[in-house]
Design a protein around this nucleic acid. Structure first.
Lengths: 214, 214, 214, 214
DNA sequence: AATGAATGAGCCTTCATTCAT
DNA sequence: GATGAATGAAGGCTCATTCAT
């Protein structure tokens, strides 16, 4: 019967919202079921086994959806490294701050990065590591061939760190720069800045102490 | 009587550990008291008014302690900008990852950044903003005088973002690079890399695609 | 399932006893559940929402039960006023003091009169006012047509006050007249006296300084 | 030192207000001490032994004060019975509803009548019984000499009951007759009505179905 | 004598989960 | 397969009281 599948799906979606908003502990099963318009108080345990297993499933769904919604560009062979790096950064920032679906997926994922549960290992393996490898591949094109893996990793983390910051520290950033400026921090302008900064660090663009025509 | 002050302090310290590990909601007053070796179940309410007020006090203590433990260097006038920036980054990274035990202070602060409560505003005002202003001051010395405030902010966030990442994403980083390499990510080497990357972006050091002497 | 209804009813009855004996604040949910032989500590909240809502329900039940158990007589048209007034008083006194066990219903209601909670307004509307109107109707038959509403009210309160006194002041009365005489204060003899006193005041019987054939 | 006596007295007075307003259980020691402007949390136990003993002392004080404030009239020999009875009723009603001191004393006493504690026996012996005997003495002057004690008691209770009702049932009365009429129920007019009603019942005044010139 | 810091028992309620249907 | 009525463990907090000073 599709009724069961439908109920299951409604719970999953509702759980995403609620977990993202309140965190695992603060979210109550009742909240989730109310949002899902499910009256059966046992539905979570019936469909998912427990509140915790439901959470794991939500995390799984979250990165699948977000990756599908904002896929990486396909670069034809010969695409310049700068363009690929800028594209990579732009995709990341779009995933971070662009509110296509209400944005709970990325919130769940960030929560998992910061405070990992059992779901984190799986998330790294299936979602983060592949992207990390792609980034390393791009960086290898523009770094000396004898660069150490550690150095390469650190460069990648420098780029990723800049991107994540604008998702994680949103409330602090808003307080520091004021509401008006904060509203201008859309995915595009943030991506443009981070690309400029990182490409300059890598010697693919002029450094920032020369031109500041923004 | 010093007994009361001692009990109060023991609760405060225990609360730091427990809140850092489990978050506000997950942590129970009973957990905290057990860890503090306090048997009186009313002690939290007696000394702090409520669980929530205890949390606010813990946050307050956390940044006071961490700031005192690892103060910013005092730069004599005429110190080169590169040295100041490198020093700033080094201080940040030391606060972030050095002495992982106790380390709950910085964990509490990160938690607050990511999932702000009432305590966040105060923390930004008294702790984060002053440091942010110092960083902006340093950056102004090496950026064109006509640079927009927004651009300056974004550069600052690029630097801060790289630093925070290594605290926030520790579990993910460990999974990505393996335990052995992860253990070599001490404050000094991370700070050295971030300074190198950022100074290159600002044109104060050669870009990273030239030399890889690590 | 009748088990749930049964449990609910057992809690309601037990709550009646306990609230009557100890009052709202003094009564504990645990007391009530112990008396109801219910082990589940959450049952009160499950069935009634809160301790307070349980209390409201108990008050509601109390006057419904007491009114049904001891209904007012039905007087055929043409019944003499004295008979109706005596019947009214007899019914009140029976409700007040007859069948002292369980007797918690009337105790709850008296408590509500003396120390009204949210439940009082409802009780007055649905239980007390209708009876008050009936009494006023009877009194109108024997008072001058131009009597003021206030005077009529005061006469009614004089009658009701005499009745209530014997419920409210039971402990004091027992101390004043001694146990033996107190045991003779059954509903019938009290009602007879109050009717005689009140009818005399209204001129429907000879005054009490003439005949004392008791 | 008079400081101790002063503190004791302030607590006693504050306790009167608070107990009257909230009842024994609802009133907290902290409430009382706050109202008394006493900071020492142990003062109640120090001066009175326990919260309960403080309550007993408050009850004792309450009737002493109320009796002194509104003493019975002194009737010269030969005063007509009607005048004495009317005076007795007027004194009672004044004690009941006239707000000389804020009126918490009578509220405490009523609470004790309705829900007697250990203090009740003493209160009856020292306060209520003497008044009861006076009333019986008055009534004996106008009832047949062969009247039974029980009958005499019941007449006394009929009179007292009418008086008490207007203190005890104040909230219900207010709901039944509306705010405007309720405000006109001052001690004098209530006493006048109760005296009229009772004297009529005793044959010392014309019955109420004759004249209603109020 | 008088204090106030500190106590611990007990309060109502919420919650994820189970079980009979 | 799916429900929702019922559970009991645990939560934070309030309060009268005690004890060292």
């Amino acid at each position: 019967m599709s009724d069961g599948d439908d109920t299951r799906q409604r719970i999953l979606t509702a759980a995403g919202y609620v977990f993202a908003e309140k965190g695992f502990q603060d979210a109550t099963v009742r909240d989730i079921l109310r949002r899902a318009d499910v009256e059966n108080m046992a539905a979570v345990n019936y469909y998912f086994g427990s509140k915790e297993k439901l959470y794991l499933e939500v995390v799984r769904q979250a990165h699948m959806q977000r990756t599908q919604e904002v896929p990486l560009p396909q670069w034809p062979p010969g695409t310049p490294t700068e363009e690929k790096l800028a594209g990579f950064i732009h995709t990341m920032m779009t995933r971070m701050v662009k509110e296509r679906t209400p944005g709970w997926q990325i919130q769940i994922l960030m929560r998992e990065v910061f405070h990992p549960t059992e779901a984190c290992t799986e998330m790294v393996r299936e979602f983060i590591r592949p992207h990390f490898e792609i980034l390393l591949g791009i960086l290898k094109e523009v770094t000396p061939p004898d660069i150490s893996p550690k150095k390469l990793h650190l460069i990648a983390f420098s780029i990723v760190g800049q991107c994540l910051y604008h998702r994680i520290a949103q409330p602090v950033v808003a307080l520091l720069v004021g509401d008006e400026e904060f509203r201008s921090y859309d995915a595009e302008s943030l991506a443009r800045h981070i690309a400029e900064f990182s490409l300059a660090a890598l010697g693919l663009k002029p450094p920032l102490n020369r031109s500041a025509h923004q």
